[in-house]
């Protein structure tokens, strides 16, 4: 588990895992789904475990049963699809995603986001599917039980008040994973297998916008794969991450940009997505619309940065809000400039 992004370091590593927790390692996905469905909410899926085990240790997750994917061999491959897109098994590690030549070529933003997630040792265990489904985080929630014991539980911990957002009293825990921002910007679709079969939908629709329950899915549904469409000619993507130190940490802000350029070098299509600023990956529709039709910037554009900073709605955060707004703008402007450069290079190579 990383320690920042609206979640300060836990003060101790006292392990609160329930000693009677059942552990199962079924050999098929179907069996894993069935085990999770037997008693909805009582089980948790164990993939790489880097976030789940930390949450269990801190007493943040009360489940009776762990269903491990250890013995399920499939859904780890990374391959180009027949139409030039990319299919990534959800159980592929972030190390594998960051290092795959196919990912670096087809979706640089994803390779950059995966390479900047957590630390090398965590990336050797953490999976892409797990990163897409990671829980939202908050300074008042991602703490050891001892730290949290000093006040009544917050909304996310089953209590009645939010300490981060005392005005409206709704959970504002932040979604802080890096790879989903890049994936949403590049038009990823996600495949889930559940008790009622398999479904594939835009990844963007997986996120509820609610800090308490950030995912729109049945608890027994398992993310099995991510698919990216073929990158059209003259398109490019980039991911920019700002964090308090250049390793381990979740982002204060992460920004992914996807641009497709028209014949005259103007922006024909833009998708800009932030992470670390809301309960899910946040698409900046206003910025996307403002970029469309404009000449793609050669370098990080101050106007874009300022417009993004101004456009961000109310933020309830432990980090200073004006600072976070400013960083978001700077990250978007830098990501847009690098995506534009990649798009121009792709067009001249075509």
């Amino acid at each position: 588990m990383q320690v920042k992004a609206g979640g300060g370091p836990a003060a101790d590593s006292e392990c609160l895992m329930e000693p009677a927790l059942e552990y199962h390692a079924p050999e098929s996905l179907e069996r894993a789904v069935a085990m999770l469905a037997e008693e909805p909410g009582a089980g948790a899926l164990l993939g790489g475990g880097t976030d789940l085990v930390a949450a269990l240790k801190c007493g943040l997750l009360r489940v009776r049963r762990l269903v491990s994917l250890r013995a399920v061999p499939a859904h780890r491959e990374i391959a180009r699809t027949a139409d030039g897109g990319l299919r990534i098994g959800a159980f592929a590690t972030l190390h594998a995603v960051a290092g795959a030549a196919a990912v670096r070529a087809a979706c640089p933003a994803l390779a950059e986001a995966a390479a900047q997630t957590a630390s090398p040792a965590l990336r050797n265990r953490a999976t892409l599917g797990g990163n897409a489904c990671i829980d939202t985080r908050c300074w008042y929630y991602n703490q050891s039980a001892r730290w949290r014991a000093h006040r009544a539980p917050c909304l996310k911990a089953g209590g009645e008040r939010c300490y981060a957002n005392q005005g409206e009293n709704r959970c504002v825990a932040l979604f802080s994973a890096d790879t989903p921002a890049a994936l949403v910007a590049c038009g990823a679709r996600v495949t889930l297998r559940g008790p009622r079969g398999e479904r594939t939908q835009p990844l963007e629709n997986l996120y509820s916008g609610d800090g308490l329950t950030p995912l729109v899915k049945d608890p027994a549904e398992i993310v099995t794969g991510i698919e990216l469409p073929a990158a059209p000619a003259g398109s490019g993507s980039a991911y920019e991450k700002w964090r308090e130190r250049d390793s381990i940490e979740f982002p204060v802000v992460g920004a992914a940009a996807y641009l497709r350029l028209g014949p005259g070098g103007e922006v024909a299509e833009a998708r800009i997505v932030l992470t670390g600023v809301g309960p899910g990956p946040l698409r900046l529709g206003g910025t996307e619309a403002a970029l469309a039709g404009r000449a793609a910037p050669d370098e990080a554009d101050r106007e874009i940065a300022d417009a993004v900073s101004r456009s961000l709605g109310v933020l309830y955060l432990a980090e200073a809000v004006p600072h976070k707004r400013r960083v978001a703008g700077v990250c978007v402007a830098a990501a847009v400039a690098r995506a534009a450069a990649a798009a121009r290079a792709a067009r001249s190579a075509a």
């Binding site: 588990m1 990383q2 320690v3 370091p9 836990a10 101790d12 590593s13 006292e14 392990c15 552990y23 164990l46 475990g49 880097t50 085990v53 930390a54 240790k57 801190c58 762990l66 190390h95 957590a118 630390s119 090398p120 040792a121 965590l122 050797n124 265990r125 381990i248």
Partner: peptide, 24 residues
């Protein structure tokens, strides 16, 4: 730290470094 943030528990699993504090 017990939470994967310090690396003191690093071991090699199939040749790759892993935080043994976050692995059952």
């Amino acid at each position: 730290c017990g939470l994967g943030a310090c690396g003191a528990c690093t071991v090699l699993i199939d040749g790759r470094p892993v935080n043994s504090c976050l692995m059952l």
